[in-house]
Design a binder for these strands. Sequence first.
RNA 1: CGCGGGGUAGAGCAGUGGCAGCUCGUCAGGCUCAUAACCUGAAGGUCGUUGGUUCGAAUCCAACCCCCGCAA
Length: 322
Amino acid sequence: MRDLIKQPVNTIFLGTNWESVTTLHSLNKDARFNIVGVITTPDKPVGRKQILTPSKVKESALDSGIEVFHTEKDVDRYQKALDLFKPELIVCKAFGEIVPEFFLEYPKYKAINVHFSILPKYRGAVPIQKAILDGEKETGISIMLMSAGMDEGEILKIFKEPILENDTNLSLRERLVKKSADILGDVLDDWINQKITPTKQDSSKASYCWQKDISKENAEIKWDSMEPEYIERLVRAMIPWPIAWFTAKHNPESIIQDKRIQLFKTELINEISHLQPGTIYINQQRVLISTKQKNTSLRLLKLQIEGKKETDEKTFINGFLN
RNA sequence: CGCGGGGUAGAGCAGUGGCAGCUCGUCAGGCUCAUAACCUGAAGGUCGUUGGUUCGAAUCCAACCCCCGCAA
């Protein structure tokens, strides 16, 4: 037994974005862990003006006085990080670089990753989005050992979380981030004190998801081929990026034409419409789009037309009445 | 100099040389058992900024600022 309060574990944290920040914070204020260093990706150009910006984790770590290191996918630099920090434990959340095996094997208590799915389902970069797209009713948090393969390591603990009807990638992600930050310290403590036996994944049941599945290109709504239920899920999965979109066709029956439209919030409405799929119309103070199912339309609760700002349904109608 | 759309009342928009408008919201009153409904009235603007053209500019010209979509 090791009393972590008396002997905090020297830990390296690997991460990049705001999710990693929440996880890092919870470990950093947890007396059982001593964050000796943070490894993150190099500063990247961001936004329309391509300003060189540090990752969220880097900003946060520097604020907390934690040393920051960039490995830049360079094997030698991983070795340097080990020499520099001499970690007993590595914790990883949303890092995004392939990490060499010797680095993972170095710490006494190994390298632990937090993944947002019930493994072995949804291995890969975008498990939340894919679970929503597939219409899954639940997903979860897998806390696992890192291995050379992608998300193939042995499982320490899995927590399940329901996917709500209105859940977007963002809302669900926020819940999972918060919950995982709450539980991670205790799971690590149990692991270090050998109260947990890792379980192998059944790789025959594995499924995968890729970053390229979530892109501007794949966020385009195809009214002629996609089922309305799928479109509604697509809208929720693409929040806050890349946002589901389509170009309103040249169609006299549609109130908007030849414009690119992004959808932020929609709901399915039972209503008979014989308009061709993708036609935008207004009925009873509601903004609707016909789908390939004649008895189902999609109601647009929040939308954005190119060149304009995001507006809700009511505001859109106010302006349209001109 | 990457491409394009835009900036007009608190919000969303119309108005392309001649009195500053529409829908919603806000405020006051009315109707109603009641209401997000309906009726009457009111407040609310330096038309992004600066300069130019003109008898006269929200409108035409020039420069700049800001917002948004695409691309990266």
